[in-house]
Design a binder for these strands. Structure first.
Length: 930
RNA sequence: GCCCGGGUGGUGGAAUGGCAGACACGGCCGCCUUAAAAGCGGCUGCCCAAAAGGCGUGCGGGUUCGAGACCCGCCCCGGGCACCA
């Protein structure tokens, strides 16, 4: 493109680039977007928004990968930036910070690949992200930025770990309390006399068993391919690692756990107080998987099988029982030989119960998780030869083992009620077991009936509806000592240690007893030791028997440490696991509030101001949290858990971290393959007549994520280069609603550039660069249009409907463009309204209009209600639902008059027929029925 | 299988039960230009040569003066969960 004929002051990419850099420097130099705190180092009583109503808006901070940002990443950041710029102008003290989540597997793996220390690559990646984000003109308070890998930051991550370690969950008050209170209670003899008789080590073990962070030897998810254990949340349903897709095996290993299950109830119930997308709430509810019901005891000889059921009301219909194959009672209750009356199908063709059980277990163990689930419909199992007694009616019921009962849920045993449970019905059909309906099924119902209805065949329960029958049965069980009401959860405790280098070290050492000892706060942070041997020990991905090895354990001089922890100088051994990636993101919303504070996690005054509840029942928290739906369970569940612990211990006044959650959509992109199936670079593909070509070769198009492997990455840097950051921002916001995923289309970006060019031209003479506005008042019609648009834009911005807000601004620009003179009365509000979307351009135009400094704190336009009243109303007139004419009347015109005018208008269409009905909808339309 | 979303022009998308398709891309035509690009102006849901008209929001019913929106029954796409007792 030749520049020779482009007017010297046209808003081109080059001019945009110059303006953008200048304003970014200005904002930095003036601290334009600093938000004042009520207390501490970041307070500023002279700030224009000191003491104003607050607004805390936050993005899910990025993981700075080596690949840098593509145009999809900043979608949410631009959205929050537009929203907060608007709210700042509308009078709010806005906190809009950004940081980096830089610990974790990918940083370490990238470092391993490149042979550089993760700290080096991480710092470089963070720096690159900062520059990329700065170029977009995002209005962050940079004083509050941090990386989770900063020792000044993870000092507090470790501090929170200590709070969790040093507390226990008291079910009596349903909250966490300091562990010292539990110890005091034991010492006072309130919890039984045994305490006094225990040795010091036994006492410690007893206490350690109550802590919210505890070491446990339990089955965990061991992933040899990654060389680390993983949390349940990090394992996919088919038993592979979410990251890397390696096989995951169940291994019993000694690991740190966090007692998130204690918070199961509150994590479910407090969802009701949150303004979150329903699907996300639902995913959390499903993950926690709370079921209410009862534990019921079924005697088997000397033994007793405890089952969990959500349907105690159906106990009279329990005709058999099933234990998980791994259940510990199986071997104890199994009969020596098949009892009389054993059906052939129950034995699996084996000569004795012991043989049948052994064979079944072997077959079950050989099945992969996928096979077990995909075979789901066909029920298998064998009889144990044992009979249990149904506690409500004394019926003798056979006990089976089957893999449709899971060892890890409830008690690993069920009472089977085929009449009311589809799985039990299917099993009963295969094994020819009796079926007793205990809830009246509707006419024609075949198979299990799981719905509501009156109880039948249930003695004293007969006639009661399900809910009432459940309650009655639980009361009966408790009164007769046969069971109790109970709640179970699918949620497991959170596996909190990883065998990695690039994570937060635990503030924990072990003494000569092998029991953990918390380091005192004064020793924080425990700095991650320097090493050049940070590679994890990984294994053949299928080697289930490999042993994890922590990189830190190789630092012998670090692991062995001499400390005085109150009883003289002693040698301790450090914990060599590190925390999982989620640790740093579990509480970062709090650190933004008071990032420089080295005395406390956050000053209570600052926490109360930015996140504290404002009314009864208000959970408090971040006012708006924007990020991808992929964090629906993991990050959001863990962060809620930690926040609740901090709340219980009095460190924060909000009981939830994120009051409102918004999931932005994903920007996707097309990718192209040639006839060999090889991906070709998307930027080299051209479209001709609805087909796509790479050179002359036809290629096929597919739709997917943006990424290196699909060769379809478009970066924000390219967009800034070709169009300018403001154009890029406007395009991203204009292309659709923020929460909808959509394809990226570079060629459409020019539309946003044209809009900005027209707006620029409205204010600036392209030849001279001088402003061309006049102080003449607007004509009344345009003034009305202006105020209608102001009202609409405000409404759209409040609801994060940026695409329609931009459409209205384009409409206003297009209305003003053909006018003979450009009135300041219209242009100034236009510039102010554009400023959230195109901040650099708006600042520049604001200056051209004669204002000094930044417009960031200039009031956002407010519509004049008097201008929102229409001069005239045009009524479309429908005849039998079709528009056949329209009449224009003044707004005060009465209904009768509108009706008469409308009928006159459509007289021809009526063709002399008498209308059956005429409906006049005031201000809307007239509908005539003939 | 169960539970959520969603289906509107060639494309991205607009529409408190009240004129379907705002705004934008693309396309077509024109102005400017030696020419091209950029810019500017016009047209652009489909059918029909055009007008008039007809048909149109995944499909089939229904409620209503009036349905893209509400109700019932299907189909398709995306996501989550998947023997959780």
């Amino acid at each position: 493109m030749s520049d020779t004929e482009t007017p010297p002051f046209r808003y081109t990419a080059a001019l945009a680039g110059e303006i953008e850099q200048r304003w970014q420097d200005f904002w930095d130099a003036n601290g334009t977007f600093y938000a004042p705190n009520p207390a501490g180092e970041l307070s500023d009583p002279a700030h224009p928004r000191a003491g104003a109503p607050k607004l805390h808006v936050q993005d899910m901070f990025p993981y700075p990968s080596g690949a840098g940002l593509h145009v999809g990443h900043p979608l949410g950041y631009i959205g929050t930036d537009c929203y907060t710029r608007y709210k700042r102008q509308a009078g709010f003290n806005v906190l809009h910070p950004m940081g980096f989540d830089a610990f974790g597997l990918p940083a370490e793996q990238y470092a391993v690949q490149t042979g550089t220390h993760p700290a080096v690559t991480t710092a470089a990646n963070v720096e690159r992200y900062r520059l990329q984000l700065r170029r977009l003109g995002l209005a962050y308070d940079d004083r509050r930025s941090f990386s989770t890998t900063d020792p000044e930051y993870y000092r507090w991550t470790q501090w929170i770990f200590l709070q969790v370690f040093n507390s226990w969950f008291d079910p009596a008050v349903n909250k966490a309390r300091p562990i010292s209170e539990l110890i005091a209670s034991y010492e006072a003899g309130e919890r039984g006399p045994e305490w006094a008789g225990l040795s010091a080590v036994e006492k410690r073990k007893l206490i350690d068993g109550h802590r919210l962070a505890y070491v446990s030897e339990a089955p965990v998810n061991w992933c040899p391919g990654l060389g680390t254990v993983l949390a349940n949340e990090e394992v996919t349903p088919d038993g592979r690692s979410e990251r890397g897709n390696f096989p995951v095996f169940q291994r019993s290993l000694k690991q740190w756990m966090m007692r998130i299950t204690a918070y199961g109830d509150r994590l479910v119930e407090d969802l009701d107080a949150l303004d979150w997308p329903e699907p996300v709430k639902l995913m959390q509810r499903n993950w926690i998987g709370r079921s209410r019901g009862a534990h019921v005891d079924f005697p088997v000889g000397e033994e007793n099988i405890r089952v969990f059921t959500t349907r105690p009301d159906t106990l009279f219909g329990a005709t058999y029982m099933v234990l998980a194959p791994e259940h510990e009672l199986v071997d104890k209750i199994a009969a020596a030989e098949w009892p009389a009356g054993t059906k052939q199908v129950w034995t699996g063709g084996h000569d004795s119960p012991a043989q049948a059980i052994a064979a079944y277990r072997k077959a079950a163990a050989a099945k992969t998780e996928e096979e077990r689930t995909s075979d789901g419909k066909v029920k298998t199992g064998v009889f144990t030869g044992a009979y249990a007694t149904n506690p409500v009616n004394g019926a003798r019921v056979p006990v089976f083992i089957a893999d449709y009962v899971l060892a890890g849920y409830g008690t690993g045993a069920i009472m089977a009620v085929p009449g009311q449970d589809e799985r039990d019905w299917a099993f009963a059909e295969v094994f020819e077991l009796p079926i007793i309906r205990t809830v009246k099924a509707p006419e024609g119902c075949e198979g299990a009936f799981t719905g509501d209805g009156p109880a039948i065949n249930s003695d004293w329960l007969d006639g009661k509806e399900v809910a009432e029958a459940k309650a009655a049965m639980i009361t009966w069980l408790e009164e007769n000592g046969k069971g109790t009401g109970a709640t179970t959860y699918r949620l497991r405790d959170w596996l909190f240690s990883r065998q990695r280098y690039w994570g937060e070290p635990f503030p924990i050492v072990y003494d000569e007893t092998g029991l953990p000892v918390a380091l005192p706060e004064s020793m924080l942070p425990v700095v991650l030791p320097e090493t050049d041997d940070f590679s994890p020990r990984t294994f053949d991905a299928d080697d289930a028997n490999s042993e994890p090895e922590t990189p830190l354990s190789r630092k012998k001089d670090w692991v062995q440490v001499e400390l005085d922890l109150g009883d003289g100088l002693k040698t301790y051994t450090r914990e060599t696991n590190t925390m999982p990636q989620w640790a740093g993101s579990c509480w970062y919303e709090l650190r933004y509030l008071d990032p420089k504070n080295d005395k406390a996690l956050v000053d209570p005054a600052n926490e109360a101001y930015w996140m504290g509840p404002r009314s009864d029942g208000d959970p408090g928290g971040v006012d708006l949290y924007v990020g991808g739906v992929e964090h629906a369970v993991l990050h959001l569940l863990y962060a809620r858990f930690w926040h609740k612990v901090l709340f219980d211990l009095g460190h924060v006044s909000s009981f939830e971290p994120f009051k409102k959650l918004f999931n932005q959509g994903m920007i996707q992109a097309y990718a192209f393959r040639d006839d060999r199936g090889v991906i070709v670079p998307a930027e080299e593909v051209v479209e001709r007549d609805g087909k796509w070509f790479h050179g002359d070769a036809p290629v096929t198009r597919e739709y997917g994520k943006m990424g290196k492997s699909l060769k379809n990455v478009v970066t924000p840097d390219e967009m800034c280069e070709q169009y300018g950051a403001d154009t890029f921002r406007v395009y991203e916001m204009a292309m659709g609603p923020l929460d909808v995923s959509r394809p990226w289309e570079t060629r459409a970006v020019v539309g946003s550039q044209r809009f900005l060019q027209r707006a620029w031209r409205l204010v600036v003479d392209e030849e001279t660069g001088l402003p061309r506005v006049t102080d003449e008042p607007l004509d009344p019609k345009t003034r009305k249009a202006l105020h209608r648009i102001i009202a609409g834009v405000r409404e759209d911005l409040e609801e994060l409907r940026f695409n329609t807000a931009i459409a209205k601004l384009i409409e206003l620009t297009n209305t003003l463009t053909p006018l003979p003179t450009v009135s300041r009365e219209a242009v100034e509000p236009l510039v102010l309204m554009m400023s959230p979307f195109a901040p650099h351009l708006a600042e520049e135009l604001w200056g051209k209009l004669g204002h000094a400094g930044s417009l960031a704190y200039t009031d956002f336009p407010i519509a004049d209600p008097a201008q929102l009243v229409a001069d005239a109303i045009t009524y479309p007139v429908q005849v039998n639902g079709k528009v056949r004419g329209r009449v224009e009347v003044s707004p005060e015109t009465g209904e009768a008059e509108v009706r008469a005018a409308a009928l006159a208008e459509v007289a021809e269409a009526l063709g002399g027929k008498e209308p059956k009905k005429v409906i006049v909808v005031k201000g809307r339309l007239v509908s005539v029925v003939v």
